[in-house]
């Protein structure tokens, strides 16, 4: 069973976990993901690769508490174990030398764009990175990104830190200013990826996104992860997760992500009410966005 080296909070609802999976790490590339289970009775949850330490065989996952399983993940102590962790899954992000490449990370998407930025940089690109969150306390990985990017832009929706506004506002300014961006990769919540791709379509800059539909096996066996790309059905776990953002049907993706909303909320309420379960205050006080 894969051993967890450490697992700690990096913003109110975001945790960073490092897992010892040397064989997996040896094969993994930026843009791929893993599927893990916390215990025998748990769900299989997909998580992007947010960092690879090839020497030590360490996989970094950065996850946001959005429901029961992600909340349960916060309870695994350093030195503890996961039930299983399969990967690397999906196709690695396409990397070539475009000249200047721009990475856009919104919310939890700040994590997976980090290894991709490293890969773009290694391929000899000038890397412009834009990261954004709702407010200052929800930002993370700024230092890591600063160390890789040639140019880093940080923004918050409420203006509590960096530029006041959305990542797409910053991107628009760059494009308007005539930045010669050959390639954009945007990862974040579905509405954010939708806005970014709508924007870049008119500038005709190729824009890739990483899609996060519900998944089970991650090997192409169930078809639960199907997405619509240019009108054709694709299985995100084996054909993606990266797709040409200008062809993605984001509305379909949004809807499909809501398939189990009632079930998930019940499970989370139940979990939070369980006595004796040690949770960080932020998790204990967890509220869905529409409950606040």
């Amino acid at each position: 069973m894969p051993k967890v080296l450490d697992n700690f909070q990096i913003s109110p609802l975001v945790w960073k976990m490092r897992v010892e999976t040397p064989a997996l790490v040896a094969k993994a590339k930026a843009g791929q993901f893993v599927i893990l289970r916390v215990n025998e009775h748990g769900e299989r949850v997909p998580m992007s690769i947010a960092g690879l330490d090839k020497k030590k065989g360490l996989l970094t996952i950065i996850y946001q508490v959005v429901g029961k399983t992600s909340a349960l993940m916060t309870t695994v102590p350093g030195g503890g174990e996961l039930s299983d962790c399969v990967g690397p899954l999906g196709v690695p992000s396409h990397v070539e030398k475009w000249g200047t490449a721009c990475l856009v990370g919104g919310g939890i998407g700040i994590a997976p764009i980090y290894p991709i930025a490293q890969a773009y940089k290694e391929a000899g690109n000038k890397v412009i990175t834009i990261i954004g969150a709702r407010s200052k306390d929800l930002l993370f990985y700024e230092e890591e990104h600063r160390a890789v990017a040639d140019e880093l832009h940080v923004c918050t929706d409420d203006g509590s830190y960096g530029h006041h506004g959305f990542v797409s506002d910053v991107l628009k300014k760059l494009l308007d200013a005539g930045s010669k961006i050959g390639m954009i990769m945007a990862i974040g919540p579905v509405p954010m990826m939708k806005v970014v791709t709508n924007l870049t379509r008119s500038y005709q800059v190729p824009t890739w996104v990483s899609l996060n539909p519900l998944m089970i096996d991650g090997t192409g066996m169930c078809g639960g992860c199907r997405v619509s790309i240019g009108g054709e059905t694709r299985f995100a776990c084996v054909d993606g997760p990266d797709f040409d953002g200008h062809k993605v049907d984001f509305d379909l993706l949004s809807k499909r992500l809501g398939a189990y909303r009632d079930h998930e909320r019940k499970a989370m309420k139940h979990f939070l009410a369980e006595p004796g379960c040690k949770l960080a205050d932020a998790v204990r006080d967890f509220k869905y966005p529409d409950e606040k």
Binding site: I216, M221, C222, G223, R226, T233, L252, R256, G258, A259
Partner: peptide
């Protein structure tokens, strides 16, 4: 066919 509530038998 991609509506919620349409599964493959495998899923």
């Amino acid at each position: 066919e991609n509506l919620i509530g349409i599964y493959s038998a495998n899923e």
